[in-house]
Amino acid sequence: MRLSYPDSIRIIQVPCTGRVDVIHLMEAFQRGADGVYVVGCLEGECHYLTGNLRAKKRVQYTKQLLDEIGVGGDRLEMYNIAASDGPRFSEVAREMDEKIRALGPSPIKTMLQKLHADDLSIHV
């Protein structure tokens, strides 16, 4: 298919979205991610039965936390895409990229860059 998706997106593989915990999502933002989205299998089709449903609830919980600290829960999303659905994966990647660009840089990233302008070890 040779489909492309924005190069701003970095993929972190997990065996199942059920492995994704609140702290993983928080750490991504803490390290300066502008947005994060979790892509799980279609609901009802989890190989481990409920992994993607658990992930969905954890994403919801983390959204609230991000709202509470003023980073913004809308920078975090969950999508369900079939493993074989390349076109949809590419479409969602573009959709998320556009959404985050519209929201602008994360305030955490902005501050990290400001506070560590001289520190080359911090890549955000």
Partner: peptide, 21 residues
């Protein structure tokens, strides 16, 4: 332990947002 890690992360970000570490 898990909730400690989440609170630590949330507080660090809340402070960073205000320009404090």
């Amino acid at each position: 332990k898990k909730e400690v890690a989440i609170l630590a992360s949330a507080l660090k970000m809340a402070f960073l947002k205000e320009g404090k570490e």
